[in-house]
Design a protein around this nucleic acid. Structure first.
Length: 881
DNA sequence: ATAGGGACTTGCAGGGAGAATC
DNA sequence: GATTCTCCCTGCAAGTCCCTAT
C-alpha cells in the first residue's frame, strides 16, 4: 500500500505536467504562432466548396480559419479524388449511382487513377512470377518498390474506367512499376534504432519534446504509463524486451497455478532496479539476450513447442530477419510471456440495487414487486423510449427472463398488460434532477466517484504503473444486441466476486474482494496473458468478459505497433500475393479459385474475413460467409454487394471487377440458392492458412490495416500543399474520410441533424435577405440616395458604395461558409472518422506528416490517442508506411 | 480436419463536459 | 447567463484469429 501511495504521488505530478503545452513538431524555430492563431469556428475547403469539421486543440482552442483555400483543392475532393480507395472502381464512371450514396461511395466517387498511375501500369508484367502457393511469396526488396504497394483499387488502371477495357488490367496485381522514390530503408523504421538512443533522442529532441527534461527519468520509482505525451519519457518503451531470465520462462498452461514466474516476487523497489538495468541495454542487445535464452529452453518446454517450431518456420521463410525478431521475440509475443510482475487491485462492482418503490401497473392497477423483480422491471422501463421495445424478440426474451424472477404464480403474466410508465417517469425525473445539479455538486460527485475508483484504476506491470482499461464490472441490465440479435432483451444478471477469476503476479497480495463475505472464483498467475480479470458473459456463458490494461499501456502499445509493422511488411509481399491470386482466378482447383477471389475481395474492398456464426448470434456476414444473395453479378463485370456486416452495419457497393473474377463469382453462384454460401469451399481458417503461406503472420484483417494506412499516406502525400494550418488539418480530415469510407465505418445520423441543417438553412435565408437589402442600398448609394428603411422600419446609416460593396462581399462569404458547413455535415453525417483513426491508421504516418508540415500533433490526436500512440511519437519525419 | 475454447481487437452508441454561440 | 453544439470518453457488443482437444 505504501507502493500505491507513492505511485499516486508520482501520478499526480505527471498529470500536472502533461496537459497544457501542446507538443509541436517543428522543423525550424519559426514554427508558427500563426499556426496556432488561426482561429474560427469553422474551417472550409474553399475550392471544394465544403467545410471540414473543426478540430480543436485540447485546450479547446479552435484552429480553423475561414480562408481555407488550398486545404483540399478540387483534387482533394473525394468526388474526384484519385487512386487510393480500394473501392475505387475501374468502371466507376460507368456504374450507376447506388441508392445509398453513403454506402456506395466507390463507384461514384472514386475517380480513375491518376495519369501517373496509368503510366506506372504500363509495364505491368512483374519481374516476380507468381509463386507456388505452397511457398511464401518473396518479399520484394526496398529497391523494387513499386506501385504494388498500393491498395489494389489504387492501382486499377484508369484505362479501364475510361475505355472499359478489362484487358488493360488483366495482370492486376503484378505490376512492378516505379513508385516515387522512398527514403532509404533506415529511415523507414525506428525499430533499428537502439532503445537507448531513442530515449536520448526523446530527452534531447528539439522542440517537440523539450519540455520534458531528462530528469524525469529518474523521478519515479514506479514509472507510470498511460499518460499523454508528457509522460513519454518515463514510460517503459514499447520495444523493451525482457531480460534473459524473464524471456526463458516457460509458457504456462492457463490453469497452471504453478506458473514458474520467479517465485520470489521482487518488491517494487527491486523491480525498478531490474528495469533500470534493462533500460540501459539497447534494444538490439536485449533482443539477442532474449533470443539466446529462449532458444536454450524452448526444446524442453511443452507449451512453447508450437511457438518455437513456428518461429523456426518463420525464420526460414523470412528474408528480413528483423521482422521475425521484432514480432516474435519481444515480450508481448515472444515465448508467450507478457509480463513478469503484475500487481493490481482487482475490479470494482456496481453498487447494489436501491429499490425506488415506484409501482408499475398491471391491468391498470399498481403491483407490488420485490426489489429483485423491481430491478428488472426498471431495466425495461428505462428503455421505453428506445427502438428495442418495438422489437418482438426483445420483449419475448425479456419476459421469459423476468418471468423466472416473478415466479410462476405471479399476478403479472403478460407483458402487454404491463404499464411501466410510472417507473419510466420516475427515471426521467431522476435524470432531470441530476441534470439540474449545480456544477459544484456535479464536481463533488465526480470526485467522490474518482476517490472510490482510484485504487482500481492502476496496475503495476513490471514495475511500471499502467492504467487499467475497464476495471468496472458490467452492471446488470438487459442485453442490447445489435441488429436482429436473437438474444436481445435477455437479462444480463449481476456479476459477483465468485464469478470472477483474477490474474495477478505470484507473491503479491491478491486483491481484496470488495464485497464482504464473498470471494473470487479463482486466482491465477498466468503471465502469458494480459488480462487482469475475467468472468463468463452471462448472456453467452461460453464467452468471457475481460479486464485489460488501457490502450495507453505499454503492453497494448507494443501489440499495436506490431500490428502496424505487420501491415507495413505486407507491402513487401503484396505484389507477389496479387499476382498469385490473379493467376488462381482461373485455377481448375475450385478451392484455389475461391481462395483467390476471396483474397481479391478482401484486398480490393477491405472486407472482413467473415467467421462462421452460431444461430444465437445476429445474422451478419463477412467475406468467407457471403451468401449468394449478397453478391449480384451485373454484366459485363459489375458486382453488387449488399449485406449486413459487423454490428449489422449494411454494406452496399457496386464494383467493377476483372472478367475472371466476375466469371468466377457467377460460377460460385450457379446451382445455389440465395441463402447458400458463395464460398462453399472456404472458411476463415483455410483462407488465413493460405495467406500465411504467402507471408508469415498474414491474415485477412491485415489487409484492412494495410489498405487503410496506405490510403492515408497516399492521400496526405497527394493533397498536402502547404498553406495555413487549417488547410492541412482539412487535408488530413479528407484523407481520414477516404479511409472511413473504404472501411465502411458508419454512424447513425444524430437526432439533431435535421434540426441543425434547417437552422443553417434559415441562417442562409436571413443572410440572403440582408444581401438583397445591401444590393438595393448599393444601387441607391451610387445614385446618391439614402438607404431604404430596415425591416424594423428604422432608418439605416448612410454608407458609401464601397462600404456597401464590402458588406455584400462579407455576406456572400458568410453564406458560402454556411453552405459548406451544410455540405460537410451532410457528407459526414453517416461517416465515423474515429474508428479508423483508433484502429487502422498507423499513427506514425500522422506523426511524421505532422512533423514534416509543422502541424501540432494534438490537432490530429486527442489526449487519449496521444497516450495510446505514445510509442509512435518519436518517429522520424521521413517515415513512410 | 474440425470444433470450440480462449484472448484479444474492432466498432458503434450514448452521455457528459466544455466550448461556441446567442 | 442560457442554450446549442462538438468532441471525447466510456461501455460493452461483436468481430478476428490462435490454440488445443478430439
Amino acid at each position: 500500500m505504501a507502493v500505491e501511495a507513492f505511485a499516486k504521488t508520482n501520478l499526480m505530478e505527471d498529470i500536472d505536467d502533461d496537459d497544457d503545452m501542446p507538443l509541436v513538431f517543428k522543423r525550424s524555430s519559426t514554427t508558427s504562432k500563426q499556426n496556432q492563431s488561426n482561429s474560427s469556428s469553422q474551417k472550409q475547403d474553399g475550392r471544394l466548396g465544403r467545410q471540414v469539421p473543426d478540430v480543436r486543440s485540447p485546450n479547446g482552442q479552435s484552429s480553423s480559419t475561414h480562408k481555407v483555400k488550398t486545404a483540399a483543392s478540387s483534387k482533394a475532393s473525394p468526388a474526384v479524388s484519385p487512386l487510393t480507395s480500394p473501392k475505387a472502381s475501374p468502371l466507376s464512371s460507368r456504374t450507376s449511382p447506388a441508392p445509398n450514396s453513403r454506402t456506395t461511395p466507390a463507384p461514384n466517387s472514386r475517380p480513375p487513377s491518376s495519369a501517373g498511375n496509368q503510366a506506372k501500369n504500363v509495364n505491368q508484367q512483374s519481374n516476380i512470377a507468381p509463386k507456388e502457393s505452397k511457398q511464401a511469396v518473396e518479399p520484394k526488396s526496398e529497391s523494387e518498390d513499386s506501385e504494388d504497394d498500393k491498395p489494389l483499387s489504387a492501382r486499377v488502371p484508369s484505362g479501364l474506367s475510361k475505355s472499359n477495357s478489362i484487358h488493360a488490367n488483366k495482370v492486376l496485381g503484378t505490376s512492378t512499376s516505379v513508385q516515387k522514390s522512398r527514403p532509404p530503408k533506415k529511415e523507414d523504421s525506428d525499430d533499428e534504432i537502439p532503445l537507448a538512443s531513442k530515449f536520448q533522442m526523446k530527452s534531447s529532441a528539439g522542440a517537440s519534446t523539450s519540455k520534458f527534461s531528462s530528469s524525469e527519468e529518474v523521478k519515479p520509482k514506479i514509472r507510470q504509463n498511460g499518460l499523454p505525451s508528457g509522460t513519454v519519457l518515463s514510460k517503459r518503451p514499447p520495444g523493451e524486451v525482457k531480460s534473459a531470465a524473464q524471456a526463458s520462462v516457460k509458457k504456462p498452461r492457463l490453469s497452471d497455478a504453478s506458473t514458474p514466474v520467479s517465485s520470489k516476487q521482487p518488491s517494487v523497489k527491486t523491480e525498478k532496479k531490474t528495469e533500470d538495468d534493462d533500460d540501459e541495454v539497447p534494444l538490439s542487445q536485449r533482443i539477442k539476450k532474449a533470443v539466446a535464452s529462449a532458444s536454450k529452453v524452448s526444446s524442453v518446454k511443452k507449451a512453447t513447442k508450437v511457438v518455437s517450431s513456428s518461429m523456426k518456420k518463420t525464420k526460414k521463410k523470412l528474408k528480413k530477419p528483423k521482422y521475425s525478431k521484432s514480432s516474435k521475440l519481444q515480450p508481448s509475443s515472444g515465448d508467450g510471456q507478457k509480463w513478469t510482475t503484475l500487481e493490481h487491485n482487482g475490479v470494482i462492482f456496481p453498487p447494489p440495487y436501491k429499490p425506488h418503490g415506484v409501482k408499475m401497473l398491471y391491468k391498470g392497477k399498481p403491483v407490488d414487486l420485490t426489489p429483485e423483480q423491481e430491478e428488472v422491471a426498471t431495466m425495461y422501463a428505462v428503455m421505453l423510449d428506445t427502438e428495442y421495445l418495438t422489437k418482438q424478440q426483445f420483449k419475448e426474451n425479456f419476459m421469459n427472463d423476468w418471468r423466472k424472477i416473478l415466479g410462476k404464480n405471479h399476478v403479472i403474466q403478460k407483458l402487454e398488460e404491463c404499464d411501466f410508465t410510472p417507473i419510466y417517469e420516475w427515471h426521467q425525473s431522476e435524470k432531470e434532477k441530476k441534470k439540474q445539479m449545480s456544477s459544484e455538486e456535479k464536481k463533488a460527485l465526480r470526485e467522490e466517484k474518482l476517490k472510490q475508483e482510484e485504487k482500481y484504476m492502476w496496475a503495476i506491470v513490471d514495475g511500471v504503473k499502467e492504467k487499467v482499461g475497464n476495471f468496472r464490472v458490467e452492471p446488470p441490465g438487459l442485453f442490447r444486441g445489435r441488429g436482429e440479435h436473437p438474444k436481445m432483451g435477455k437479462l444480463k444478471r449481476r456479476i459477483r466476486p465468485n464469478d470472477i477469476t483474477i490474474n495477478i503476479g505470484k507473491g503479491v497480495p491478491v486483491p481484496e474482494c470488495p464485497i464482504p463475505g464473498q470471494r473470487w472464483k479463482e486466482v491465477r498467475h498466468d503471465n502469458t496473458v494480459t488480462w487482469l480479470a475475467f468472468w463468463n458473459d452471462p448472456i453467452n456463458p461460453r464467452e468471457f468478459k475481460y479486464v485489460f490494461l488501457a490502450a495507453s499501456s505499454s503492453l497494448k502499445g507494443q501489440s499495436d505497433k506490431e500490428k502496424y509493422e505487420k501491415a507495413r511488411r505486407l507491402k513487401d509481399y503484396i505484389e507477389g500475393i496479387r499476382s498469385a491470386y490473379t493467376k488462381d482466378f482461373t485455377s481448375k482447383d475450385p478451392v484455389k479459385r475461391q481462395i483467390a477471389v476471396a483474397t481479391y475481395l478482401i484486398d480490393k474492398l477491405a472486407l472482413r474475413a467473415g467467421n462462421e456464426k452460431d444461430d444465437d448470434e445476429a445474422d451478419t456476414v463477412g467475406c468467407c460467409t457471403l451468401k449468394v444473395e449478397n453478391v449480384e453479378p451485373v454484366p459485363p463485370n459489375i458486382l453488387k454487394f449488399d449485406f449486413l456486416g459487423k454490428d449489422s452495419i449494411r454494406y452496399q457497393n457496386e464494383v467493377a471487377v476483372y472478367e475472371p473474377v466476375f466469371k468466377a463469382i457467377q460460377q460460385f453462384r450457379s446451382g445455389k440458392k440465395g441463402g447458400d454460401d458463395l464460398f462453399d469451399k472456404l472458411d476463415t481458417s483455410k483462407l488465413n492458412a493460405h495467406l500465411k503461406e504467402l507471408m508469415p503472420g498474414l491474415t485477412a484483417k491485415v489487409f484492412r490495416t494495410y489498405n487503410a494506412s496506405f490510403t492515408l499516406e497516399q492521400q496526405l502525400t497527394k493533397l498536402t500543399q502547404g498553406g495555413e494550418l487549417a488547410d492541412k488539418v482539412a487535408v488530413y480530415n479528407v484523407a481520414n474520410k477516404e479511409v472511413a469510407i473504404i472501411c465502411n465505418h458508419q454512424r447513425t445520423v444524430s437526432k439533431s441533424h435535421s434540426v441543425q441543417i434547417s437552422r443553417l438553412n434559415e441562417k442562409i435565408d436571413e443572410l440572403k435577405a440582408i444581401l438583397e437589402e445591401f444590393k438595393v442600398d448599393l444601387t441607391r448609394a451610387k445614385k446618391g440616395k439614402p438607404p431604404v428603411k430596415g425591416a424594423d422600419g428604422k432608418a439605416k446609416r448612410n454608407l458609401t458604395p464601397e462600404a456597401l460593396q464590402k458588406k455584400i462581399d462579407q455576406t456572400n462569404v458568410k453564406i458560402d461558409n454556411i453552405e459548406r458547413q451544410i455540405e460537410t455535415k451532410e457528407e459526414l453525417k453517416t461517416v465515423a472518422l474515429g474508428t479508423s483513426k483508433i484502429n487502422y491508421l498507423d499513427p506514425r504516418i500522422t506523426v511524421a506528416w505532422c512533423k514534416r508540415h509543422e502541424v501540432p500533433i494534438e490537432k490530429m490526436f486527442n489526449k487519449s490517442l496521444l497516450a495510446k500512440f505514445a510509442w509512435a511519437m518519436d518517429v522520424e519525419p521521413s517515415f513512410t508506411f
